[in-house]
Design a protein around this nucleic acid. Structure first.
Lengths: 418, 418
DNA sequence: CGGCTTACTTCAGGCCGTGATTTAACGTGT
DNA sequence: ACACGTTAAATCACGGCCTGAAGTAAGCCG
């Protein structure tokens, strides 16, 4: 209903560049010929645009395909080293900063423990900036070639005005005591790089979509199952954000109205039944003092050893998960549900059959038939990859435009004269 | 990831036409000047495009705004009579076919009871076609000026190939015994008009979004509460369909895993607790033989008369509805939740405060604060209006192009020569 | 070495939106 | 009455874009 009218004829070129670049990025080396067939652009345009992209150094030729009688096709691919990406994972115990090239090869990484100050905001900001400086320096990377810094954080992220250069980014992280933290503004004081912030679970989902179990799909839900429970919904190839980017809070879906008290304050939330924290607590037989992960591993081991209480608890968890997944199936009608998160990957092999059965039982037949339920293929360390995906997405969308830096408008008056 | 590259420079014009047309349609009469400011298009383009639209008869001048010293602005509006729309509601007891002009004024309508044959498919198809012929004939409407026939049906609608002229439309209507009914193909045998089919609840939601309580919003959920319970999710201004158009099946969300048996076969569905059918049945004190609507009205009257059982039942229903709405808030993060459907409108005035309170209690604080919960403003008779919205949406999207008729390609070779 | 096939490049042609300029249609002040 | 200032709309040169056709490059095969 709002839909700003497309601007000018130049946007067409931007669109073409974007299409070609995305195609080459995701579908590996392709010849100009193939690009033409796939994208529907005329051979002339392909030639034009790829010429531009080659001149910009964004793509490169890489060998050719042998022919049976005609001129061989020259293969093109994205030039991996032309630009770099930074992904940051603000985790439960540490901050991890990683530098990638365009082919998402990790060139350097820096892990910094949260020390005694926990998730104190200033401390976290310091660690991010220090890690960023470290990976750039260690690899001698020119900041001008860095497309941006993607950051996965716990909590709900409000994006603010898209044009405000990240200054409007505000984080509400109940579990770490962040209340309306202006993360964008705080980081902006320490770097000029473009900033992208999203919920860590959502960035993990993004990674799973681009490079994992959701590859190539247009409609999927990544169900993330850890201490808490979350989901990342992909609709028509893009993250479903809702009005204020908080869509996908699946963990607080009700499975028993008026039931178990959840840490969010409400009763009967899914998370209160199947979150790793809740499971370990309900089992009650975990080795004391051990962390959540050790506790859950112990629970699993007990179940594998045919201990009745553990087995029953996991069976119940599978039923709840299956029922809650059925809700996702009914509401979002995805092509696939991917179960990820550390707890999901740990318990998945044992629980998956029961989860599938419960989902079939609780979901409507038609949408259930359209959906497969699978385990994720990426571990929690993929949060950084997913975070790096955020600036990458922008880059591909814009047709390979290098972002302007903070404070400098896209085009200064002097540039016009030059 | 797929994203066919934009085609040609002509698509720009199509986009401009669409923007202007949509703006004029929704925001009433506007001057060229205002259009320029709103859409960002240059005055030159506005002049050009509106000139084209005027020549096509799609818009017309309608008076002018007085000035204080300059040339007065001429107001433009969509020409209501230039094209017509047909909306069809395949209801529980009858088939209603209505003819509208572009300003959605109802020019004629035809109600035909389902008679003894119930929802027998061939019978329904006959009624639709007969009604269609009747309203066209009675008003002397030229079929060439009819943009299409939008049909709201019970059940899940699979859209099939978008380019296949509706032939791929298949309906799965469990409650009326339709199993994979090729409705598009059946209707195509009786009319050449473009066909659009969607779930009736969804078309009602569409109407509420365009002309009712959701007007102007980009993210909303229309919760429809009748014999069953459904929802129509609007994301970024468009219906959220999911992979196979069945998204939004809210009625079978679990509120008590393993709880009450639902007519869908599963246990613990929302619909089994708050659907009108379930409420009347659970109450047990409705006048026997009366319909569902009378039963629910009696239940409400009893509650208003302070009968404890009725009051408690409704209070419980409000809590369940609130909790289930909290799920919608958490998962979709909408700007507004609109409660509609005949049962929703009937009980709404009494239950709304309790529903709001329960939603606040069960939803996460942040997304809940972004959402208002209101009653719908359109009755069930708006299904036809919503259905007529389907071809209208296409029309506006295309920039006011009259759809080609079935079988005739958009442009014949002879046209090229002419 | 000439002929054939296939991939890529070049270029004229038709459109498009912008932005400056021109024309149209008003009030106002003298 | 009439010139003047003001604002809205129309016109037009310009730079750009994609298409489709014609031309060129680069391999096979006989």
């Amino acid at each position: 209903m709002t839909a700003r009218g497309k601007k000018t004829v130049r946007d067409l070129r931007r669109g073409s560049r974007s299409t070609l670049l995305r195609r080459l990025y995701f579908d590996g080396p392709l010849s100009r010929q193939e690009l033409g067939v796939i994208t529907g652009l005329s051979a002339g345009s392909i030639s034009n645009v790829t010429g531009e992209l080659l001149a910009d150094g964004l793509i490169e030729e890489c060998g050719s395909v042998e022919s049976d009688g005609g001129r061989p096709r020259i293969l093109l691919r994205v030039a991996a080293g032309r630009a770099h990406l930074v992904g940051v994972d603000v985790g439960e115990t540490q901050v991890r900063v990683a530098l990638f090239d365009l082919a998402r090869t990790e060139l350097a990484a820096s892990d910094r423990p949260l020390a005694g100050r926990g998730h104190d905001v200033d401390h976290v900001v310091e660690l991010i900036l220090a890690g960023l400086a470290e990976v750039l320096e260690r690899t001698g990377t020119d900041p001008a070639g860095v497309l941006g810094v993607g950051i996965g954080v716990p909590g709900i992220v409000e994006q603010g005005e898209p044009a405000s250069d990240g200054l409007g980014i505000v984080v509400h992280g109940q579990t770490v005591g962040w209340d309306a933290v202006p993360l964008g503004r705080l980081l902006r004081a320490g770097t000029d790089l473009p900033l992208f912030v999203d919920n860590g679970a959502k960035t993990l989902g993004q990674a799973e979509m681009w490079f994992g179990a959701g590859r190539g799909l247009r409609h999927a839900v990544i169900a993330l199952f850890g201490s808490g429970v979350g989901a990342c919904v992909i609709a028509d190839g893009a993250r479903f954000r809702g009005a204020t980017s908080s869509a996908g809070e699946w963990g607080h879906t009700k499975v028993h109205v008026g039931g178990r008290r959840c840490r969010c304050g409400a009763r009967g939330c899914l998370e209160a039944y199947v979150g790793a924290e809740a499971l370990v607590e309900r089992w009650g037989a975990a080795p004391p003092g051990a962390g959540e992960k050790a506790g859950l591993a112990a629970l699993l081991a007990a179940a594998e050893a045919d201990e009745p209480a553990a087995g029953a608890l996991l069976a119940e968890a599978a039923e709840y998960l299956g029922a809650a997944i059925a809700d996702l199936v009914n509401l979002f009608n995805p092509e696939r549900i991917v179960i990820g998160g550390w707890a999901g990957l740990l318990l998945g092999p044992r629980l998956l059959p029961a989860i599938r059965a419960a989902a079939t039982e609780y979901a409507l037949r038609f949408p259930r038939e359209q959906t497969s339920i699978v385990l994720g293929t990426l571990g929690p360390e993929a949060v950084t990859v997913g975070a790096a995906t955020l600036p990458l997405s922008d880059f591909l969308e814009s047709g390979g435009e290098f972002p302007g830096r903070a404070g400098s408008p896209a085009r200064t008056p002097s540039e016009v004269r030059a």
